[in-house]
Simulated assay, not measured.
Amino acid sequence: MTISEVSKKYELSQDTLRYYERIGLIPPVNRNKSGIRDYTEEDCRWVEFIKCMRASGLPIEVLIEYVALFQKGDETIEARKDILVEQHKVLVEKMEEIKKTIERLDYKITIYEDSIVEKEKDLKKLED
């Protein structure tokens, strides 16, 4: 696939894809005879993985470390797992914070809704 096709498929700009490759977030992409990037299915899996991890808030530095370890081979499996476990913990904590915020918003919304209902009742009484 060309960079244009990958860009459209994963809704990432071509500049972002080049940047991810340049900083080592995705392994170097092979090029065709004309020097144009030719993304393989494996390259696309990396793009998809990085996009997912970035969307969940993982820092670029952590992902660079993860990819570098991956490229070193199986002797880094434990280190890679440790990175993912740590990031999982961070995401669970964020999720709990978001859950608490949602609960607070629900509470505040209920108060406003109750207030609106009471005002409507008061207005109806005045009209009667």
Rank of each mutant, 00 (worst) to 15 (best):
R104K: 15
I111M: 10
R104T: 15
A79T: 13
K108R: 07
I60G: 02
E48M: 09
E103V: 07
E65K: 06
K108F: 12
K99V: 09
E93L: 11
T76Q: 06
I83Q: 04
I116L: 15
K108D: 08
S56G: 05
I98W: 12
K100A: 10
Y112S: 05
I50R: 03
L69E: 04
M53G: 03
Q87P: 04
K100P: 04
E93N: 14
E93V: 08
K94S: 10
K119S: 13
E120V: 14
K121D: 14
K124W: 14
Y112W: 12
E103F: 06
T76F: 01
I102V: 13
S115H: 09
K51V: 11
R104H: 05
T76K: 02
Y112N: 08
E120A: 07
K81L: 14
I77Y: 01
Y107D: 09
I64F: 00
K119T: 13
L91Y: 07
E65N: 05
F70E: 07
E118Q: 15
G57T: 13
C44E: 15
V85Q: 08
L105K: 09
G57R: 05
R45D: 02
E86P: 00
E78H: 02
M53H: 05
K124S: 14
S56E: 10
L123P: 03
E97N: 11
L69P: 00
E86M: 04
L105F: 03
L123H: 07
D43I: 01
E42F: 12
P59R: 15
E103N: 08
L58C: 04
I60E: 06
